[in-house]
């Protein structure tokens, strides 16, 4: 086992897989010689050569479009979109093309691509470096969406995503690249070296897509979260000393509904947390599913703590961020009923 932060774990996943499978290619803006603006692809070009790890023109449309074409040839491309906020020019290629290729060709052509992209806020990135657009992708038939919350998961999930024969959107919560974040922005930053999930095997391992992780078992309340918000929720549970069951979804689509259902039926209460905007967000889907499947077990309405329905503000970032205060208030509200 080695100590890794999330960037190193992602790098390790790419390294391990590229070594095993010569059909894997990595491409994106600044990913080659420089190794990516977050260093996730550092060293890979030197090791695997310029035709397997290369910089691209600044064209998200082009990056995803050529990845689809490479996939049609038989390669397994792992394109990087530098920030999730920049993914929109590539939407047509993802939504109309990659997502439907298997369907429209009756399985003759597929798009075994994994689009990696840092997402989420908490880094004073303003409205163009902070967004959480996962709900746009979970809404598209034919795309899988994955969000890791620890270095260990990031590596195992990325390996499973790349090996998956369908297109996967792999959103990396950049706020926790270097360490877990409790949401208390005014406290000293932690790094992964003190966290058990910063222990990452150097070799190959997979974490199957579609399997959630029970971060902490509990009896009184189920909290559903993913990415950065898993750690914020964990912090609140600890501070409040409540017996909540915290579930890290890890894969939004396909969703591990069994784990969710079993938990909510046990606890009778459910809180959904995400950083993305609220309306038509993934929390709405979660809330509907829990209501449909666990209605007669619920002791209180399902609550959502999310980003507000505004663009991500710069100066009021911490008022926007669904932090410990808002989660704490929501928990009080659910537990009151």
């Amino acid at each position: 086992m080695a100590r890794m932060n999330m960037i190193q774990a992602i790098n390790s996943a790419l390294d391990v897989l590229m070594d095993r499978d010569p059909d894997i290619v990595v491409m994106g803006e600044d990913v080659g010689y420089f190794g990516g603006v977050f260093r996730a692809t550092a060293g890979l070009q030197a090791k695997y050569g310029k035709t397997r790890v290369f910089d691209t023109p600044i064209s998200e449309l082009g990056i995803i479009g050529v990845a689809v074409g490479m996939g049609a040839y038989g390669l397994r491309p792992v394109p990087e979109i530098q920030f999730a906020d920049y993914i929109y020019p590539g939407l047509d290629q993802l939504v109309s093309e990659a997502a439907r290729l298997r369907y429209r060709s009756a399985g003759e052509f597929t798009a075994p691509i994994t689009v990696r992209s840092p997402f989420g806020g908490g880094i004073f990135g303003g409205q163009t470096h902070s967004q959480s657009p996962e709900g746009i992708f979970t809404h598209v038939a034919g795309l899988k969406t994955v969000v890791p919350s620890t270095p260990y998961d990031a590596k195992g999930l990325l390996i499973a995503a790349i090996e998956d024969n369908d297109p996967v959107i792999f959103f990396e919560p950049k706020r926790i690249y270097n360490g877990p974040f409790s949401g208390h922005y005014d406290r000293p930053a932690k790094n992964w070296s003190q966290h058990p999930d910063g222990e990452v095997p150097e070799d190959y391992y997979r974490i199957e897509l579609g399997k959630a992780r029970v971060v902490r078992p509990g009896a009184d309340l189920t909290i559903l979260a993913y990415g950065t918000m898993v750690h914020v929720a964990a912090g609140v549970i600890e501070e409040q000393g409540i017996d909540a069951e915290l579930i890290d979804l890890r894969t939004l689509l396909p969703l591990d509904i069994e784990t969710i259902e079993a938990s909510v039926k046990k606890t009778g209460r459910c809180l959904v947390i995400h950083e993305a905007t609220r309306t038509s967000g993934f929390g709405a889907e979660l809330s509907a599913l829990v209501q449909e499947r666990c209605f007669y077990h619920l002791e209180a309405p399902v609550e959502r703590v999310t980003g507000y329905d505004t663009p991500y503000p710069h100066s009021l970032e911490w008022a926007y961020f669904p932090g410990p205060v808002r989660i704490g208030e929501a928990i009080k509200k659910i537990m009151k009923d």
């Binding site: 906020d85 303003g126 409205q127 710069h314 100066s315």
Partner: peptide, 27 residues
């Protein structure tokens, strides 16, 4: 004093009076 009310990333100026369109971070 920020006329953009702190909503935009630094240097993403905008001033109609200066005939200067709101700068986007997207390229």
């Amino acid at each position: 004093g920020d006329r953009l009310a702190g909503k935009q990333l630094p240097i993403m100026y905008s001033t109609r009076e200066g005939s200067f369109f709101s700068i986007s971070g997207n390229l």
